[in-house]
Simulated scan of single mutants.
Amino acid sequence: MGPLRKIRLVLSVACASLICGQSIAQPLQTKTILDVNGFERPIPAFTVGIPQGWDLTGGVKWRQTTCSSSANQAEWQASANDGSDRQIVFFPVETWYWGSMLDQMPQFANSGGTGCPAARVFDAPSYLQMVITARRPGVRIIGMRPRPDATAQMQQAISSQQLPGGMQVRFEAVEALIAYNMNGKEMRESLMTIVQFMRTPTVDMNGGMGGYIMSATSFGVIGLKAPNGQLDFNLMEQVRRSLQFDPGYERRMAAYYAKVNRSRRAARPSGVSAQAQLNKTYSEISDIQHKGYMDRSAIEDSMQARTTDMILEQQGYVTGYGEVVKLPNAYDRAYELQNGGFVVTDSPSFDPYLDTGVDGTEMQREEY
């Protein structure tokens, strides 16, 4: 393999121990996060890169809830085993909603069609503040900063889409630095989240279309804590970028959400009451908000699939068997090797056999 060719051999969508296309400050080991009780057997849900020698605990847990997007909760921690108290944490995805009718009709605040909680939270800093209060009570917030770099590609992808029904979609990312004392040691922790906000026009109290419903989904909260002076912001960014959905789990969850949404629509009450209108709007928003897990229309599917790939920095490619595999999007070409592996490269002169010793075929990009 030529030393000047920018080629990465990929044995899985997690790029083994590499963060493809990124400058790596330290080697990472790929760990699998399991969903142990959501299906007929434990299955891989995500992969993530953590520092060599760190221990990973946690996984995906299911809970009884009518908010389908919060049914499976991914929460995990990766801890250094050198006594330094350094730890990476991940808090679960959360979904909430609010609407113009709820100011006048608070009795409907937690009875919408999605079953998700109501909250007057309209921006990412407010959400992260809420998480810090719940998860880290009594800490000092040193500061917050926006992270437009983490949402630029997602926002660009959404801006090119024709959204249905006057819907407006925006992404916000924010990072906070907090301080606290733990076992007599002064600690610092960085916490970062990305939140997707959807605002859709809806009926108002007068029967017109002057109202709105807002639905929001956080893509989890990732954090890194360490003793004061030892916080490595680059490490947290490396780990964040390494998170990858398992393709098989993505398909299983797509089927789950499609079933939930079909059941919700079938059970929707008839009539023209304000509650019925709210349920209709909540159900329609729920259908389009969860990483491609909806079956309503081609334009909605395309928007959500493209957004998910932007978030995970991946691109779908079609294999010789007609299946779609997700690979890093930082390269121009992808090849399927006869030994079952994949290669991503931006070299126009790449030859699978000459460069890897294994025959292979170039794959076509998935069409959204």
Rank of each mutant, 00 (worst) to 15 (best):
G113I: 03
G113M: 08
T114P: 06
G115H: 00
C116P: 08
A119G: 04
R120N: 06
V121F: 08
V121R: 08
D123T: 14
A124I: 02
S126P: 04
S126M: 06
Y127H: 08
L128G: 02
M130C: 14
A134G: 13
A134M: 07
R136H: 12
P137L: 05
V139S: 00
I141C: 11
I141S: 05
I142T: 10
I142L: 10
R145T: 15
P148H: 02
P148Y: 03
D149M: 01
A150L: 13
T151D: 05
T151I: 14
T151S: 04
T151K: 02
A152H: 12
Q153K: 14
Q155N: 10
Q156Y: 08
S159I: 08
S159L: 07
Q161K: 06
Q161D: 06
L163F: 01
G165E: 11
G166V: 02
R170V: 02
R170S: 09
R170K: 05
E172S: 06
E172H: 03
A173C: 11
E175T: 07
E175K: 12
A176Y: 09
A176N: 04
A176L: 04
L177N: 10
L177V: 13
L177A: 09
I178C: 12
I178E: 06
I178K: 03
Y180G: 04
N183W: 06
N183P: 01
G184K: 00
G184F: 00
K185D: 12
K185T: 15
K185M: 13
E186F: 07
M187T: 06
E189Y: 01
S190G: 08
S190I: 14
L191M: 15
L191R: 14
M192Q: 15
T193N: 11
I194E: 10
I194K: 15
V195G: 01
Q196L: 07
Q196H: 03
M198A: 15
M198R: 11
R199S: 13
